[in-house]
Amino acid sequence: MKRKLDIVVISDVHLGTYGCNAKKLLNYLNSIEPKHLVLNGDIIDIWQFKKRYFPKAHLKVIKKIMNFSANGTKVSYVTGNHDEMLRKFTDTEIGNITIVNKLLLELDGKKAWIFHGDVFDVSIQKAKWIAKLGGWGYDMLIVLNRWINWYLQKRGKERYSFSQKIKNNVKSAVKYIGDFEKTASDLAIENGYDYVICGHIHQPTIKVKSNSKGSTTYLNSGDWVENFTALEYRLKRWKLYNYTNNKLIPFIPDEELKDMNTKDLIAAITIVEQP
């Protein structure tokens, strides 16, 4: 029997790249029935997208997400840096699928703030100024990130990518992760959020963070490249699901997907319903 969940948050899937573990993700998605699926950024890796590499399993993940939507699951696609091209479609709604830059939810009397987290790469030490500007300040950071990457491309340089920069320096990576968690948590406390939920840094965790002004619960959904993790909300509690450690009953892929060839899958995810 599939597990019924109120909210599921996944991020950093990187469909369209060799590092993506689409089969494991598909197996996980086939094991759950969420009321609300939050795709918290970097789901399709548009930065590294190659026309010749988009395997059948990657297409099946997209089809599965669309099936969720068609069957009544609310799907919120929160944009990240690797899929930042979708930010031009912010607030677009297609059936039960909505594209947003950030997501605010009321959960059993508590407030949750969900965003990918790449905006902190602009200047993590000075990012607290957006606490004084609220949602408008956060949106301005997104615009600033977009212009920075546009400028880098014009100069023939690579787009800014945190993950590429820290792989050669473990010490700086640890410091960045600590700064990232503190900045996100301080902002959440400043704005009165009980939960702050991020992705981006591929570090799955749930922890309570405090400062002199209060406390909040910081959550990170991790990734489906190395950690294979997701956040699940049910019975007023958050749980960090780990595909490797949590026992998972083997699920056969949906019958609708199992025998579909690549051509059929492409047709299924590109069809446009007529009113």
Rank of each mutant, 00 (worst) to 15 (best):
K167W: 05
L144Q: 14
G137L: 07
I142R: 12
Y176S: 01
A173I: 01
L141H: 09
A188H: 02
L144N: 13
K132V: 02
M140V: 13
N149Q: 11
Y151C: 06
I130Y: 07
K157D: 13
L144R: 13
I177T: 03
W129R: 13
I166D: 02
R155Q: 15
L152E: 14
W129Q: 07
K132W: 03
S163I: 03
Y151V: 11
L152K: 14
M140T: 07
K165E: 12
G135W: 12
S172M: 11
L141P: 04
I142T: 12
Q153K: 15
I189C: 07
K171T: 09
L144F: 14
L133F: 05
Q164P: 00
N168S: 09
G134R: 08
Q164W: 05
Y176W: 03
K157M: 15
I130Q: 07
K157A: 14
L152R: 15
N169S: 15
D186N: 08
K171W: 02
A184Q: 01
E190W: 04
I166E: 05
R155Y: 11
Y160G: 09
V170G: 00
L152H: 10
L144W: 12
D179M: 11
I177K: 05
Q153V: 10
E181C: 04
V143I: 15
L152D: 09
I189V: 11
K171V: 05
A173S: 10
S163N: 10
